[in-house]
Amino acid sequence: MARSHATYWAGRGVVRGAQVVHEHEGAPEWWHATIRRLEAWTDTRSAQRGLDLVRRWGAIGVTLAYLTVGVQTAVFAAAGLIRMPYPRFFLASLPGAVAWAVVWATIGFGALWAAFALFTTSPWALAGALVVVGILVAWLLRRRARRRADQGAAAEVQAEV
């Protein structure tokens, strides 16, 4: 909850900071540079996914973001950037945080206890399992990168046509 709410308020702060810079052109250069960096972040793929999710689903998107990996921070920041009312964000975050806690308390701790039990049985078995998981993660990441590259190439071809 602390991270999600801090990220929400950071997003709100970005909006407020941009307003202040726009209203007072006499702001120091470091402030302008900070706003430019934050604006550049909002152009990233992850930030755009978070903004799109919050714009489309609103508070439900915030709740569901707790169950995702890789887009949570972007959704929480996006909620602040689009100035979602804080009471709505707070109420949306409650069931999401509970769901995240349940997932962590069951699957997360279950995985940790399984790894501990495997280690006490055979440290080599745990090492082997970690290698297999590492290979699987690397394969999935490479597959995702290939798919994105293919989509980018298809978009370039489409743009040329």
Results as ranks from 00 to 15, higher is better:
Trp124Cys: 01
Ala155Phe: 06
Arg88Pro: 00
Val131His: 07
Trp9Ser: 04
Gly152Ile: 08
Val71Ser: 11
Gly70Pro: 05
Val103Pro: 09
Arg12Gln: 13
Glu39Trp: 02
Pro87His: 08
Val75Asp: 01
Pro95Tyr: 14
Val98Glu: 02
His32Asp: 09
Ala159Gly: 06
Ala138Asn: 11
Tyr66Pro: 00
Ala74Leu: 00
Gly134Arg: 15
Trp139Val: 14
Ala149Tyr: 05
Val20Tyr: 06
Thr120Ile: 13
Gly26Cys: 09
Ala78Asn: 05
Gly50Ile: 05
Thr44Ile: 08
Pro28Phe: 10
Leu64Trp: 06
Val69Arg: 03
Val133Gln: 11
Val132Ser: 12
Ala65Trp: 13
Thr68Trp: 00
Val131Leu: 11
Phe109Cys: 04
Arg142Tyr: 06
Ala65Asp: 13
Val103Thr: 11
Ala65Arg: 06
Trp139Thr: 14
Ala97Glu: 03
Val103Gln: 12
Leu38Arg: 00
Thr121Arg: 15
Arg12Pro: 02
Gly50Pro: 06
Gln48Leu: 12
Val103Asp: 03
Thr106Glu: 09
Ala153Val: 05
Tyr66Ser: 08
Arg49Val: 11
Gly58Arg: 04
Val103His: 09
Ala47Thr: 04
Trp41Tyr: 14
Ala114His: 07
Gly152Glu: 15
Ala149Glu: 14
Gly13Arg: 04
Tyr8Asn: 01
Phe109Arg: 12
Gly50Val: 04
Val137Glu: 04
Leu51Lys: 06
Ala40Asn: 05
Leu67Thr: 07
Gln158Met: 15
Pro87Ala: 04
Leu112Val: 15
Leu53Tyr: 00
Arg45Val: 09
Pro95Ala: 15
Leu38Thr: 00
Ser4Pro: 04
Ala77Arg: 01
Phe89Pro: 01
Val137His: 08
Ala77Ile: 06
Arg12Leu: 15
Thr73Ile: 07
Leu91Thr: 10
Gly17Pro: 03
Arg16Tyr: 02
Ala2Pro: 05
Ala114Trp: 07
Ile35Tyr: 06
Pro95Lys: 06
Thr7Gly: 06
Leu53Ala: 12
Trp100Lys: 13
Ala129Trp: 03
Arg55Asn: 12
Gly134Leu: 01
Trp9Ile: 02
Tyr66Lys: 00
Leu130Val: 03
Gly108Met: 13
Met1Phe: 04
Gly108Leu: 13
Arg147Gly: 03
Val20Asn: 01
Ser122Leu: 04
Leu141Ser: 12
Trp31Ser: 13
Ala115His: 09
Gly13Ser: 14
Arg143Met: 04
Leu94Gly: 01
Pro123Trp: 07
Thr120Glu: 14
